[in-house]
């Protein structure tokens, strides 16, 4: 909960103007399927469940995303091993570098980010 709030603050510092949070798979899927997002970070463990269904939905909608996890590099499975991973605990600089790398358009600025954690 506090981690999520800290990430929101970090994103706000980067200039993200619209940050949406989903605390479980159901809510995350509903959001991904109904709203456009520029970027997303996705916790591998969402409310006790693996979040790969959300990862597939993000792929389907072409939303670039990174995983965040406390399980380490090997913690990302289900064919998503090549996705960028934020290892907890991560700092603002690490988050910024990952998000920068995710943005396909080098001139783009993060404006809307889905945060599922």
């Amino acid at each position: 909960m506090l981690v999520l709030m800290a990430i929101e603050d970090m994103l706000a510092d980067f200039g993200c103007t619209s940050i949406t949070v989903a605390g479980n798979i159901e809510k995350a899927l509903a959001l991904v399927n109904s709203e456009p997002f520029d970027l997303a970070t996705l916790d591998v463990n969402l409310d006790g469940q693996r979040s790969y269904a959300v990862a597939r939905a993000l792929n389907l909608h072409g939303v670039p995303f990174a995983f965040s996890t406390g399980y380490g590099e090997h913690g990302v499975g289900d064919g998503f091993g090549n996705r960028p991973v934020l290892n907890k605990p991560f700092n603002q600089t690490q988050l910024f570098e990952i998000l920068k790398g995710l943005l396909a358009d080098p001139k783009g600025h993060p404006s809307s980010t889905l945060k599922a954690a």
């Binding site: 506090l2 981690v3 800290a6 406390g70 399980y71 380490g72 913690g75």
Partner: peptide, 20 residues
């Protein structure tokens, strides 16, 4: 694995407490 996950999450929480 689970312990590691919890430790990392707890460290992240402590980090957030400090940042806030």
């Amino acid at each position: 694995d689970e312990l590691n996950h919890r430790v990392k999450n707890t460290l992240a929480t402590v980090q957030s407490i400090v940042t806030q």
